[in-house]
Simulated assay, not measured.
Amino acid sequence: MTTMEQPLVVGTDGSEPSLRAVDWAADEAALRGVPLRVVFASLWERYEGTALATDIGKPSEEVLADDIVAGAAGRARRRHPELKITAEVLAEEPEYALVREGRLASALVVGSRGRSGLAELFLGSVSLSVAAYAECPVIVLRGSHDNRATPGTRGRVVVGVGEDAKDSAAVRFAAEEARRRGVPLEAVRAWRCPAHESTDHPLMAGEPARLHHERAVEALEEALQDLPADVEVQRGTVEGHARRVLVDASHRADLLVVGAKRRDGHFGLQLGRVAHAVLHHSACPVAVVPQKA
């Protein structure tokens, strides 16, 4: 299956956050020119809630799994009538179903939380698990994205450039997203001068910090050297913890892109501290792009 044939997959459970994710995913699929696949995965047959029930005109206790996917697909179709849309109910735990769906997807889109009703400050366990294990990019709809993938309100895509700057899958993904939207790509590299390298000697004052800053600039240039010429790139090196720097940058972005190393044979969440932090605290949608270690 070629990249152009790979669908964009969105997970829904009928909750309001997941329906906003369907809206966003429909925009993104139309932007990419790929089919949209709407998936509802659950071991529960019945829906518990009012948002979707009201939309399809049924009492909540009468809404079944098929209604959820049909309602979500219909919502996407009304938004983009030209879009090729498929929908399916999967009777299994959503984490496993969505990770498996990601094997044949161009990307996965999920809401930040589902039917638990927790405040958006907290990331749902399904979203976190999918972002940690999926083999394709996962976009988690955090922040005030206004249900739209494009045009964005802030007009930029931000990517965090990590330690392995060369041949970064996250940078390539971010550049393509910026190109599709016709907005600048802001590449950010955080750097810190470890405390044990500081010195009070007047002839050495500032020297360790200067060296770390220069290395950050070099890493940034290495990461960006092969990007398409039609992508406008803005560069930024910022002193501080990468987690704080990227969360701050999310306030001026429509999409924040970070990488996550995937190690063969490694068990447990494969996210890293930076990706984990921005998934919990970003002010905009976050794309987690897997990178083979």
Score class of each variant (00 low, 15 high):
residue 12 T to S: 10
residue 191 W to L: 01
residue 89 V to D: 01
residue 118 L to D: 05
residue 206 G to D: 13
residue 107 A to P: 09
residue 166 K to P: 03
residue 84 K to M: 09
residue 286 V to S: 04
residue 6 Q to Y: 02
residue 33 G to N: 01
residue 1 M to Q: 15
residue 199 T to V: 07
residue 293 A to I: 03
residue 134 A to I: 15
residue 169 A to Q: 04
residue 284 C to P: 06
residue 274 V to S: 07
residue 293 A to Q: 04
residue 128 L to Q: 11
residue 132 A to F: 15
residue 241 H to S: 14
residue 40 F to R: 01
residue 185 L to V: 06
residue 257 V to W: 04
residue 15 S to F: 12
residue 206 G to W: 13
residue 116 S to Y: 05
residue 200 D to I: 08
residue 64 L to A: 09
residue 243 R to A: 14
residue 14 G to H: 08
residue 218 E to S: 09
residue 270 Q to P: 06
residue 1 M to C: 12
residue 156 R to E: 11
residue 290 P to L: 09
residue 143 G to F: 08
residue 252 R to K: 13
residue 5 E to V: 02
residue 207 E to D: 10
residue 292 K to H: 15
residue 205 A to M: 06
residue 90 L to A: 13
residue 60 S to H: 11
residue 217 V to Y: 03
residue 139 I to F: 11
residue 164 D to Y: 14
residue 69 V to L: 05
residue 208 P to G: 14
residue 97 A to R: 07
residue 72 A to T: 03
residue 256 L to I: 01
residue 139 I to V: 15
residue 175 A to W: 02
residue 114 G to A: 05
residue 175 A to T: 05
residue 212 H to P: 15
residue 29 A to E: 02
residue 257 V to Y: 04
residue 278 V to Q: 05
residue 260 A to Q: 08
residue 242 A to V: 09
residue 271 L to M: 02
residue 73 A to H: 01
residue 58 K to M: 15
residue 84 K to E: 09
residue 274 V to R: 07
residue 211 L to C: 08
residue 51 A to R: 05
residue 43 L to G: 10
residue 133 Y to V: 00
residue 89 V to G: 02
residue 64 L to N: 07
residue 222 E to W: 00
residue 170 A to W: 00
residue 110 V to G: 01
residue 198 S to R: 12
residue 43 L to R: 11
residue 180 R to I: 06
residue 173 F to M: 03
residue 128 L to M: 10
residue 4 M to T: 13
residue 45 E to P: 13
residue 148 R to S: 14
residue 175 A to K: 03
residue 124 G to M: 02
residue 88 E to K: 05
residue 262 R to N: 06
residue 92 E to F: 01
residue 143 G to M: 08
residue 183 V to I: 00
residue 121 L to Q: 15
residue 13 D to E: 12
residue 283 A to V: 11
residue 4 M to S: 13
residue 31 L to H: 11
residue 132 A to T: 09
residue 95 E to C: 07
residue 261 K to Y: 15
residue 165 A to T: 01
residue 122 F to W: 13
residue 40 F to C: 00
residue 258 V to C: 03
residue 284 C to A: 12
residue 192 R to I: 07
residue 193 C to Q: 08
residue 279 L to D: 06
residue 56 I to A: 12
residue 145 H to K: 08
residue 90 L to M: 13
residue 61 E to I: 14
residue 130 V to L: 08
residue 204 M to Y: 13
residue 176 E to V: 02
